[in-house]
Amino acid sequence: MRMSRISSRGRLPKIRKISALRLALLTTLTGLLVMFAFSGCSLLHKEQAGGPLSHEINEQEDVVYSHGYTIKNLDRLDEFMERRSGSLRLIQYTPEGGPIYKELRYKGGKLVIAYDTTEDDFGPKETGTFVCTALNREDESTVLKYTLTGCEGEYPETALLWIGFELSEMDDFGFVLKYGVNLRNEINTIQEKLVKDLQDGSVAEADHFKLSHGQLQKIFRELVLANYMHDKTLTGSCNIKPSVSYELQIDINNHELQFAWSECDQSADGKEMTALARYIIGMVQEEKLYKELPDIRGYYE
């Protein structure tokens, strides 16, 4: 079953709360980053590539980042950094929708980066290569940075990929996570309540449930990294009895997203969403309000 994004308010999604001025500033900043990373590449290394990189995208292997929307196969980049061998392709879309192609390859203990900006309508259309000594990963609360360092030429440090997840830029954010056998557990930040399945036919409820901004920021980060804005192919069918099911509703920027799946869904999307749900559940179960709820009294056979 393909679980598409659903808007109960009849609006297209507004990914970020951006005024005209902020949008102009964001576009300018992104343009500067692109210029910094690529216009200066001819200064980093004089060697030119033989031609454009392949513009065919491998959805299973290439790292693909659409600004403010989706990030695919990010684990491939982390594996590449840990392996320190072979090659990796990265396709990054600008805010205007133009793809920038990059290919990273370890050679002689260094990183050779080939780039192709020929499909970027708002930047320099060029191809080339430059060389750096290392790729560093820096994980902050609102941004995940991948930075090339020790680069030859005028710019020794260059941003390769920055993924932002600043919650304060959203108009609103809340979620409802139902889980367990027959979905009898519920974490609801919209109605501010918790429901715990006692597994004896009854449930315990707590009102006035809230998570701190810091906790919501962490959850939002996991949502972005789980590619929450991208359509998921999920299944609720399961041959385990009884089985654990999940339903997740996200309300963000006057837009509603819904997902449903079971523990039997071992697809990449299913595993990703199950890990996200368990992250949220683990965080909530450490809360004092949850611990004050009655202990589970029964069990499911």
Score class of each variant (00 low, 15 high):
residue 119 E to K: 15
residue 252 I to W: 00
residue 180 G to P: 01
residue 116 D to W: 00
residue 160 L to D: 04
residue 268 A to T: 13
residue 160 L to F: 06
residue 265 D to I: 11
residue 156 P to Y: 14
residue 82 E to H: 10
residue 261 W to H: 04
residue 269 D to N: 15
residue 275 A to P: 03
residue 34 V to I: 15
residue 258 Q to M: 06
residue 198 L to H: 04
residue 184 R to L: 08
residue 277 A to P: 05
residue 98 G to Q: 07
residue 152 E to D: 10
residue 27 T to L: 15
residue 257 L to D: 13
residue 83 R to K: 08
residue 58 N to E: 11
residue 166 E to Y: 11
residue 1 M to S: 10
residue 255 H to D: 02
residue 15 I to S: 06
residue 8 S to T: 10
residue 27 T to D: 14
residue 16 R to D: 03
residue 133 T to R: 15
residue 131 V to M: 03
residue 104 L to G: 00
residue 84 R to A: 13
residue 114 A to H: 06
residue 152 E to K: 04
residue 197 D to Y: 11
residue 142 T to W: 01
residue 199 Q to N: 09
residue 264 C to K: 10
residue 146 Y to G: 04
residue 284 V to N: 12
residue 71 I to M: 06
residue 90 L to I: 15
residue 238 C to R: 08
residue 56 E to D: 15
residue 105 R to V: 10
residue 103 E to M: 09
residue 21 L to I: 02
residue 190 I to G: 05
residue 128 G to V: 07
residue 3 M to K: 14
residue 189 T to A: 09
residue 104 L to N: 04
residue 210 K to F: 11
residue 277 A to N: 14
residue 183 L to E: 09
residue 222 E to C: 01
residue 78 D to K: 10
residue 242 P to S: 05
residue 258 Q to S: 12
residue 96 E to L: 10
residue 166 E to I: 04
residue 118 T to C: 01
residue 54 S to Q: 04
residue 74 L to I: 12
residue 19 S to I: 03
residue 46 K to L: 08
residue 293 L to K: 15
residue 186 E to D: 05
residue 297 R to G: 03
residue 132 C to D: 03
residue 136 N to L: 02
residue 263 E to R: 14
residue 7 S to F: 03
residue 153 G to E: 06
residue 277 A to S: 13
residue 284 V to F: 08
residue 152 E to L: 12
residue 265 D to R: 13
residue 267 S to V: 11
residue 246 Y to S: 09
residue 113 I to H: 00
residue 125 K to Y: 05
residue 208 H to W: 02
residue 219 I to N: 01
residue 122 F to R: 08
residue 196 K to G: 02
residue 24 A to G: 10
residue 37 A to W: 00
residue 121 D to N: 07
residue 99 P to H: 09
residue 224 V to C: 11
residue 289 L to K: 09
residue 118 T to L: 08
residue 125 K to L: 04
residue 186 E to H: 07
residue 112 V to N: 03
residue 218 K to H: 01
residue 96 E to Q: 08
residue 165 F to M: 11
residue 248 L to W: 02
residue 287 E to V: 02
residue 239 N to E: 12
residue 63 V to S: 05
residue 107 K to Y: 13
residue 212 S to P: 05
residue 81 M to D: 03
residue 87 S to M: 10
residue 190 I to L: 14
residue 166 E to A: 14
residue 28 T to K: 08
residue 268 A to S: 14
residue 284 V to I: 09
residue 217 Q to A: 15
residue 132 C to Y: 00
residue 144 L to W: 02
